[in-house]
């Protein structure tokens, strides 16, 4: 399987006052095209740092990150931003939608950032919102939607520009079990129907079981990797 994400001896050390705090200690990881990977581990094991680095929002202390053939660690800040715009979609635990914009407005903004003019891909927007069962919420603002609906809009926004990788940081962390199931189903559908590569951080073993592969992290290391049946 062709690798879309590859990290080689990835290290990250935070400087807190005069103390160096290592967050990642040489992480080697690969995710193939169309693969759905779940990363699990206790709090502070480096999962979020890993996600922020592969998302181009943090520069690692050492190591290499290859995204769809491009070396993230050799890039400037603006080049990383450009790569994030072209190849990465983010889903956050707290949805992070723009509260003043409707569901469609949030999607349009993501398209605009991706250098597409407003309304250029309205069919895809509608298809996506239909797939995520949000066709009747298109003009609703975040505060007029449930948490599950908001997270589905966030999911739609993350994939509207067809990113090479979807990075999801605890996407069900703020949802009840019913909405969690819906969002996890959506992630699975996106993966199956569009071949979307997904890297998801989760504490929830049930959520992790939906992925193709589960990676265990501890103390900044990858300590295990297993395929789900």
């Amino acid at each position: 399987m062709e690798s879309v994400l590859e990290t080689i001896k990835l290290e990250m050390v935070y400087r807190v006052g005069k103390v160096d705090v290592p967050a990642l200690r040489g992480v080697d990881l690969q995710a193939g095209a169309g693969e759905y990977v779940a990363i699990m581990g206790p709090s502070g094991c480096g999962k979020s740092t890993f996600l922020h680095i592969v998302g181009g929002m943090l520069q690692p202390t050492a190591g290499q990150v290859m995204i769809d053939g491009e070396d993230l660690t050799r890039m400037t800040d603006s080049q990383r931003t450009d790569l994030r715009r072209r190849k990465i979609g983010f889903v956050f635990q707290r949805f992070n939608l723009f509260p003043t914009l409707s569901a469609e407005g949030n999607l349009k903004l993501a398209e605009r950032i991706h250098h597409k003019s407003n309304g250029s891909d309205s069919k895809r927007r509608r298809d996506l919102l239909r797939l995520l069962k949000l066709e009747d919420k298109i003009h609703h603002k975040p505060l007029e939607m449930s948490g599950g609906e908001q997270q589905r809009v966030a999911l739609a926004r993350a994939v509207i520009n067809r990113p090479a990788i979807l990075l999801a940081d605890e996407p069900t962390g703020n949802l009840d079990s019913e909405n969690s199931q819906i969002v996890l189903d959506m992630l699975r559908d996106l993966n199956k129907e569009f071949g979307q590569t997904i890297v998801m951080i989760t504490h929830n073993p049930e959520a992790a079981l939906r992925a193709d592969r589960i990676i265990e992290m501890r103390d900044g290391h990858v300590v295990g990797s297993r395929r789900n049946q």
């Binding site: 929002m57 931003t81 994030r84 072209r86 990465i88 956050f92 992070n96 723009f98």
Partner: peptide
């Protein structure tokens, strides 16, 4: 600040 962070997360450039 948070919304600006979201814009950055979506890949918005500095000029944007």
């Amino acid at each position: 600040t948070r919304e600006i962070g979201i814009l950055k997360g979506l890949g918005a450039s500095k000029p944007f």
